[in-house]
Structure formats: structure tokens, C-alpha cells
């Protein structure tokens, strides 16, 4: 009798074990991140403003306000340009780098290691270094322009140039990880495929477009998700580089949200921007994975 109860107890304990094992991790993830999403969504439906006493349920008013607000619309457009620029430049560079790293025999490991270095540098440090590189008076780029007898450009004081520099800085920061993801895709291709293709007289570009690109398309999807995800939410690089300026030219959504919430203390409006950023992220990720992950 006792033995039977014991056995039952043991069995129940065995059933519970996996749930107990995942409990701490889930508590952290959902206690913090899940909470933030739910509470943020809720906040966005209310009118919570530290400057005003009353708070009330306003449903979609915050969203309607945003889409009629010139500063928000400007930031949305700037974000889209910023993301589009970073993702296209980032994808081209990381594909180039990954393909050449795959071919590199001498110093191959050293170069792979070097390629990842910017991934270890913080967004703030990246921004400071690029600010120095492109600064009006002491920047290397301007020093080179002057040495070549060209006119110096005050990059960060010019709206369009500043956005361009922001894209470049962001790309430097996000390309390494995408490069290694693509490299992992190329490395997993059976080398015999290349050999037989070359024997059959396939040209370089044929090998690239007919073998490599189709086979690494899942990895392309993942690196695109990474590139656009990192760009959409970019905050660390922009704030020290340009602070959103000049004239709001680089005020991407994350920076706009920070200013609304922490400078103007409009939490509800900030939360509404959060929800919009989240929707963009989920939508673009789903789109890329649908396009590139056809066989899954």
C-alpha cells in the first residue's frame, strides 16, 4: 500500500520536474518582458500623463493623435529610410564579406575573428568613434577631403548627411553578426556541389545565383530579421551620434519614443509608439521568414 503511494508520488514528481526546471527562466522572461508588453499595450489605451492628475481610458486616441502628429510622422518616415538604408547596405556588405571569408584560406580564422569585433563594441562607443570620424573639424573623412583639395563637409550638421552617417554607423555595428550567420549557411553547403558545378562548366555568377543563394536562403531570412530588427530599434547609436538632430532628421522611432516618454513625460503616448514599433518588428520578421523559408 505504502509502496504504491510512494510510486505514485515519484511518478508525479517526475511529471513535474520539467516544469520546475523551466520555471526560473520563464519567471524572468515573462515577469519582465511579458509584463512590459502587456502593461505597455494597456498604458497605450489610457491617458497617463505625469503632468495631469486624471487618467482615463481613451481607447485608440493616442494612436489617432500620433498619426496626425507631424513629429511622429516625420520620425516614422525617417525610421523607414534609416531601416531601408541599413538593411540594404547591411545585406550587400554581409553577403560580400561572408562569400569572401568562405574563400579565404590564409588568415581565414584571423579574418573571421576580426569581422566579428564590431559586434563586441557597444553602440555608444561605436557612435562616439563615428562622430569623431565624421566630425566637421577633426574628422578623418574631412581631413582626407581637405588633403584632396575638396571642400570639407559638416556631416552631422546637415540633415541628409547626418542620416547617411547614422545609416553607415548603424551598418558597421550590425553587419558582423549578419556576416557570420550567412557564413554559417555557406559553410553548411556540401563542397562537392561546387566542384561538380565547376566541372560542368558553370560560371562564377551561375554558382552564386543557382547554388549558393537558394541554399542559404533560410540564413538570408534570419540575417534580414536581425538587420532590420536591430535597425528598427536602434537607440544606442543614434542618441550619442546626433541626438536625433539636426532638425529631427535622425529622430527614428525609438528616439522619438524616448523623448516623448522621458522628456515630455507622456508615458501613454510613448507606450503607443512601443506598440507600433512591435507591430513593425513582427510584421517584417514574418514577411522575411515567409519569403526565405519556403521549404520549412
Amino acid at each position: 500500500m505504502d509502496a504504491a503511494i510512494n510510486l505514485k508520488k515519484q511518478k508525479r514528481r517526475k511529471l513535474l520536474t520539467p516544469y520546475l526546471l523551466i520555471l526560473p527562466g520563464f519567471l524572468f522572461v515573462f515577469g519582465v518582458l511579458g509584463y512590459a508588453v502587456l502593461y505597455g499595450t494597456l498604458l497605450s489605451l489610457f491617458d497617463m500623463d505625469l503632468m495631469k492628475a486624471e487618467t482615463g481610458f481613451v481607447f485608440l486616441d493616442n494612436y489617432i493623435y500620433l498619426f496626425q502628429n507631424a513629429a511622429f510622422l516625420n520620425s516614422l518616415v525617417r525610421s523607414l529610410i534609416f531601416v531601408f538604408g541599413s538593411v540594404s547596405l547591411g545585406l550587400v556588405l554581409s553577403l560580400f564579406f561572408a562569400l569572401s571569408l568562405y574563400r579565404a584560406t590564409r588568415f581565414g580564422n584571423f579574418l573571421k575573428g576580426l569581422a566579428l569585433v564590431p559586434y563586441l563594441v557597444s553602440g555608444i562607443a561605436t557612435a562616439v568613434m563615428f562622430r569623431f570620424l565624421f566630425s566637421g573639424d577633426v574628422g578623418l573623412i574631412n581631413q582626407v577631403l581637405i588633403t584632396l583639395n575638396l571642400d570639407a563637409v559638416n556631416f552631422l550638421a546637415h540633415p541628409n548627411w547626418a542620416l547617411f552617417v547614422a545609416v553607415l554607423t548603424n551598418t558597421w555595428f550590425i553587419v558582423p553578426f549578419a556576416t557570420l550567420i550567412l557564413l554559417s549557411g555557406i559553410q553548411s553547403i556540401d563542397p562537392e556541389l561546387f566542384d561538380s558545378a565547376t566541372v560542368d562548366g558553370a560560371s562564377k555568377s551561375k554558382v552564386l545565383t543557382k547554388i549558393i543563394l537558394p541554399l542559404i536562403s533560410p540564413m538570408m531570412g534570419i540575417s534580414l530579421v536581425w538587420l532590420s530588427f536591430a535597425s528598427f530599434n536602434m537607440f544606442d547609436v543614434i542618441l550619442p551620434l546626433t541626438g536625433g538632430g539636426p532638425n529631427r532628421a535622425t529622430e527614428v522611432l525609438a528616439v522619438y519614443m524616448y523623448n516623448v516618454a522621458f522628456d515630455e513625460l507622456k508615458y501613454s503616448l510613448g507606450s503607443a509608439v512601443m506598440v507600433i514599433i512591435l507591430i513593425f518588428n513582427v510584421a517584417t520578421s514574418a514577411l522575411y521568414l515567409k519569403i526565405f523559408n519556403t521549404d520549412d
Binding site: I22, A36, V37, M257, S271, N281
Partner: peptide
């Protein structure tokens, strides 16, 4: 629910850190 839970724990990977600061700070 193993697969569901594994998916659930992955969702935060598409949650942008910077965008969560407003509700997190409030909490």
C-alpha cells in the same frame, strides 16, 4: 506544451529592448 513553451520563450527575441523602457520604467 513543450513546443509551445519553447516558442513562447523565443518570442522575446523579437522584442526590441529600447522600446520596452517605458512600461518597464513605470513598473
Amino acid at each position: 506544451c513543450r513546443h509551445l513553451l519553447l516558442m513562447l520563450i523565443l518570442i522575446p527575441r523579437i522584442l526590441p529592448r529600447a522600446s520596452l523602457i517605458v512600461p518597464l520604467f513605470a513598473g
